[in-house]
Computed example of a mutant assay.
Amino acid sequence: MIDARLAAPADAPELIRLRKVMIDSMGDDPAPSGEWERTGVAILQKQLAAADGTLAAFVVDRPDGPGLAACVVGAVDQRLPNPRDPTGLRGYVYNVATDPAYRRRGYSRACMTALIGWFRAHRIRAVDLRASRDGEPLYADLGFRRTNDPAMRLRLDLN
């Protein structure tokens, strides 16, 4: 059995490293390194240290040395309630990543299973994510289903 553990603030640099691995695997060109990584580490260190129950990350340590083999990050968002969701609490999964050297060993599944348990313990009734083609079979096996709601996004120019 693979043990996924709750991430600590000290794991933030590795979580961001794996985030870049994930981003790179979804695009044609590698993502440039830069300020976004330092900002991400600072944000994760702060959020992982908070005891407010709005963010959690689960990780699997590399079996052969220091660092992380896989991770997932999940957040809780307070939305307005509706008849099917009287609390309005919504979970969101992001940053599911496995280092290429450790893929196909069940590490992402272990992280996702731990995160789903965390959402369940926090009484979250609905959990959303955006699936890559590679990740979709895992998510479907864990019970995620496509929704009828098309995703849309507006990017605002802040200059």
Rank of each mutant, 00 (worst) to 15 (best):
T147S: 00
V41T: 07
R79N: 13
A57S: 09
G67T: 04
R84L: 14
N159A: 15
I2C: 08
G91S: 03
P100V: 10
V127T: 06
E14A: 12
V76Q: 07
V127G: 01
R5S: 10
N95P: 05
S108D: 10
S33V: 14
A121S: 14
V21Q: 03
Y94N: 08
T39M: 13
Y92G: 02
S132N: 01
M1K: 05
A121D: 15
F58I: 12
D99W: 00
V96M: 06
P66S: 03
S132R: 01
L158F: 15
D28Y: 15
G53S: 04
V72E: 09
R145W: 08
R123C: 12
V72Q: 07
L115F: 10
P32S: 14
A140K: 08
G143R: 10
L89M: 10
T39I: 13
L142H: 06
G106C: 02
P9G: 05
Y107F: 13
E37Y: 08
F119Y: 10
R145S: 14
P86W: 01
R79H: 11
A56T: 07
D11N: 03
R103C: 03
R84T: 14
A4P: 11
T54Q: 14
L142Q: 06
M112W: 01
Y107S: 00
L68Q: 06
D134C: 11
A4M: 08
D141W: 14
L6A: 06
A50W: 11
R120I: 12
T54N: 14
L15P: 04
S132E: 03
A56R: 09
G27D: 13
V96Y: 01
Y107T: 03
N95W: 08
M1Y: 12
F119Q: 02
G53W: 01
R153P: 12
R38E: 06
D11K: 02
P9S: 05
P83Y: 15
D61A: 08
G67A: 03
P63K: 07
T147E: 00
P63C: 09
M152C: 11
P13C: 01
R120H: 15
G106T: 08
V73I: 12
A110V: 04
G88S: 08
A69D: 04
M26Q: 12
D52K: 14
K20Q: 13
I124K: 07
Y139S: 02
D61I: 06
L142I: 10
P150E: 07
R17E: 06
W118L: 09
A75K: 11
P13S: 00
P83V: 14
A57W: 09
D61M: 07
D52L: 12
A75R: 13
T147R: 01
V93S: 04
A10K: 00
G27W: 11
I23Q: 12
A7M: 02
V96C: 11
L44R: 01
Q47L: 10
E136F: 00
F58S: 04
L154D: 08
R153E: 15
R19P: 07
M26D: 02
M112G: 07
G135V: 05
E14I: 06
V21K: 11
F58W: 13
P63S: 10
R90G: 00
P150Y: 05
V93I: 03
R146K: 02
G135P: 06
R38Y: 06
T113L: 13
N159C: 15
V76G: 09
I23V: 14
A49Q: 09
D77W: 14
G88E: 06
